[in-house]
Nucleic acid binder design. Structure first.
Length: 321
DNA sequence: AGTGCCGGGGT
DNA sequence: ACCCCGGCACT
């Protein structure tokens, strides 16, 4: 859009491209994967520096990206610039931690930059929610298509276990969650966005208010595949629950998990291959995820960098899908 | 053809 | 348990 924006993007791309020494013995096959995928130690500095200095750049890039198009691939960029390099440590250190978190934590690291970019889509009349024009769930990369029939109204439903309160404004919902469930002061106006995880946005068909739950899918039907959102070992759900909450299920919400383990109401490991309603396990094998696995990321050489599972030709446990 | 990984083997 | 690999499903 704007020259500044493209500059921001270029900056990011450059940052990613610099580190992997091309063909150097120690250089690792970073070229194979997403650019920064295999950045080893040296790039850690680069990444840090980048995210530090480029607070603005990143925001700009984010702004441009969001306004250009909100494809998941694009949204995946920011994490790719600095998230991957801890791979060698983080992956190893936290194999047991609910595994689904490991990849989504990439994105979680970036939630911080979001609130500041509230003017990312200038054309959108800013909704009550000040943090993000798209409401809650942009995080996982689905653009939440806003276009609907004229007779729909956006409501906000509390996803807290056995609450289900529905409010008409996101700010009200945030306040509700803050006070009711998070035990915070209502007047404390600082919202770290944590509340976002506990409510979802629904388009309520005004004409058919009676069918209640049936209209609870706030996102397009195509968005049922959250990119890189691994369900750990979750067996296929016999059928998809009503709520499409795969996007709203934070494996572990950022912030104090101390009080009340804020479990997502329904961790829905939606399966790409299984159409909703199929009760029979549709495939013997687990469908191939779109995540790049060790082999692809690190290449056949540098096999020693693969996770053990990959080395043993088992299901990759580093890049879960 | 390349990739992911199940199943089955060896140590 | 750890490690390897044939072979197949999938892209």
């Amino acid at each position: 859009v704007s020259p500044a924006g493209s500059a921001g993007i270029r900056g990011l791309a450059g940052g990613a491209a610099v580190a992997p020494g091309p063909g150097q013995p120690g250089g690792h096959a970073a070229g194979a994967g997403r650019g920064a995928g295999a950045l080893p130690a040296p790039s850690a500095l680069t990444g840090r520096k980048l995210s530090g200095k480029a607070g603005i750049d990143e925001v700009m890039a984010a702004a441009v990206l969001t306004s250009l198009s909100a494809s998941p691939l694009v949204l995946g960029h920011p994490p790719a610039t600095h998230a991957p390099e801890p791979s060698s440590e983080v992956w190893k250190e936290a194999p047991a931690m609910s595994s689904s978190c490991s990849s989504s934590s990439n994105t979680s690291g970036d939630w911080s930059w979001d609130p500041s970019s509230d003017r990312s889509t200038p054309s959108t009349p800013s909704p009550p929610l000040s943090s993000h024009p798209d409401g809650t769930h942009f995080v996982f990369g689905e653009p939440t298509p806003r276009k609907r029939k004229n007779s729909t109204k956006v409501m906000f439903k509390c996803l807290w276990k056995s609450c289900g309160k529905v409010l008409s404004s996101s700010s009200g919902m945030q306040k509700h969650i803050r006070t009711m469930h998070l035990g915070r002061k209502a007047d404390l106006e600082q919202s770290d966005g944590e509340e976002d995880f506990y409510y979802t946005e629904l388009d309520v068909d005004v004409d058919a208010l009676t069918d209640g739950l049936s209209s609870l899918t706030p996102v397009s039907p195509t968005s049922s595949v959250p990119p890189a959102f691994p369900g750990p070992e979750a067996p296929l759900p016999p059928a998809l629950p009503i709520l499409d909450l795969a996007l709203a299920s934070p494996c572990s919400p950022p912030g104090p998990p101390g009080r009340s383990i804020a479990v997502a109401p329904h961790p829905v490991p939606s399966h790409p291959r299984c159409p909703p309603g199929v009760t029979v396990p549709c495939a013997r094998r687990r469908p191939r995820g779109e995540a790049k696995k060790c082999r692809k990321v690190y290449g056949m050489e540098h096999r020693e960098m693969w996770c053990t599972a990959c080395r043993w030709k088992k299901a990759c446990q580093r890049f879960l899908d």
